[in-house]
Design a binder for these strands. Structure first.
Lengths: 210, 210
DNA sequence: ACAGCCATGTAAGTCGTTACATGATTGC
DNA sequence: GCAATCATGTAACGACTTACATGGCTGT
């Protein structure tokens, strides 16, 4: 029986990529994932801690216990040479495109099951969410371009200077892409609201004439 | 212990929404999901058959065995009134926005771990995939606008005529949104390729001068 | 003393994936 | 006869989610 997931498992590589910038604890990694909006991959700490143990067991990262205050301890992880090699393998690998799976669009497909007011409410929520996302990504792009995030500075320090521009450029390109995405979601919701207005007007006209 | 998924489970509603158009077998439903590119939610048959049984047990759909040829049988499912009510509840409910989780963008963030040639290869694959997606969604929008899909015709037949425009319009709006999405992914990949060209030229210039 | 953050886990469940299986029907 | 398609499942596993838990440190 050969069950092999062909690596949807990006969490592992996201963790290694972060640790390639600087050693960190699980807690700090978790903050990167769910507190800071600046990360492309979400994960809760309950997924991160076990994964770190597995990565350590696989030799891709190395953890060591540090003291924190008098009785407290914390475990700081650093990427290993094997981990770096695995990151390189992963970056070179072509991943299968993700499966289409969008709850908001699915629901919008069937707005006829609800009222015009409901369709409006749904589009408004979509709009509000993605407008906020857009602002967050925009802010992050600016930070990246100014090289003004602590993690980026640490990352740059680990590479020869002639590569710095490329490192920043790739990241800025990603987050600019997310800005564009968010913007087009906003636009989609806005034109959805227009659509609902037109449909409701048409329905009203029909009532009046019928 | 109260573990309740607050309904990421769109598969259930996707199935009911399809069955609201016309009764179907699991096989036919599965084709809608993974053969036809025209569906927003992917699911393999191994997920669909058990889910249908669960929906039936919950009274949201009703299945009945039909004969197929001499010895063969098939099970056709139809939505129930309870199922229709559940669809209405679902459409009226605000779902939490999906978590950011994009493998391609995550990888692109760390292209510095690979070569320029690799970055180019990744962007090209991204471009090719989304260009194809774009064409598929475009074709589907046209079919919808012409009311030229069998499922849509069946669906319209189940509703009073004054609602037909809205039913078509919502669906066309969704698939036009997907076209826009695909287009901006194509554009993102294209400008990614430009970026790699610039970075490589800059690196070459540095080699020459250094 | 207490709040808020730092820090690390476990448990139980759902969702989605690939692979493994089987058999009938239809058309050539 | 044989291939393609119709039709329906199960098994094992990996991925992700929510909730349950615990305890130390820091500043007021």
């Amino acid at each position: 029986m050969l069950y092999v997931y062909i690596c949807l498992m990006s969490l592992r590589h996201a963790l290694m990529a972060l640790l390639a910038a600087t050693p960190m604890t699980g807690y700090t990694l978790a903050k990167q994932f769910d507190q800071s909006a600046a990360f492309v991959w979400h994960a809760p700490h309950s997924q991160i801690y076990p994964e770190l143990r597995r990565l350590e067991e696989a030799g891709l990262i190395a953890g060591h216990e540090e003291s924190r205050g008098i009785r407290g301890t914390k475990r700081t992880y650093a990427i290993t040479d094997e981990g770096r090699a695995e990151l390189q393998r992963w970056v070179a690998e072509l991943s299968p495109p993700p499966r289409e799976r969008d709850g908001a669009y699915l629901k919008a497909t069937y707005f006829e099951f609800g009222s015009f007011a409901n369709a409006r409410r749904q589009f408004q929520a979509h709009l509000a969410h993605h407008r906020q996302q857009q602002r967050q990504w925009e802010a992050h792009v600016e930070q990246l371009e100014n090289r003004d995030t602590s993690l980026l500075r640490l990352r740059l320090a680990a590479w020869p200077e002639h590569l710095h521009d490329a490192i920043v450029a790739y990241k800025a390109h990603v987050y600019r892409g997310l800005v564009t995405r968010a913007r087009s979601e906003v636009e989609w919701a806005r034109s959805g609201l227009d659509l609902v207005d037109r449909l409701e007007a048409a329905a009203g006209a029909q009532d009046a004439s019928g």
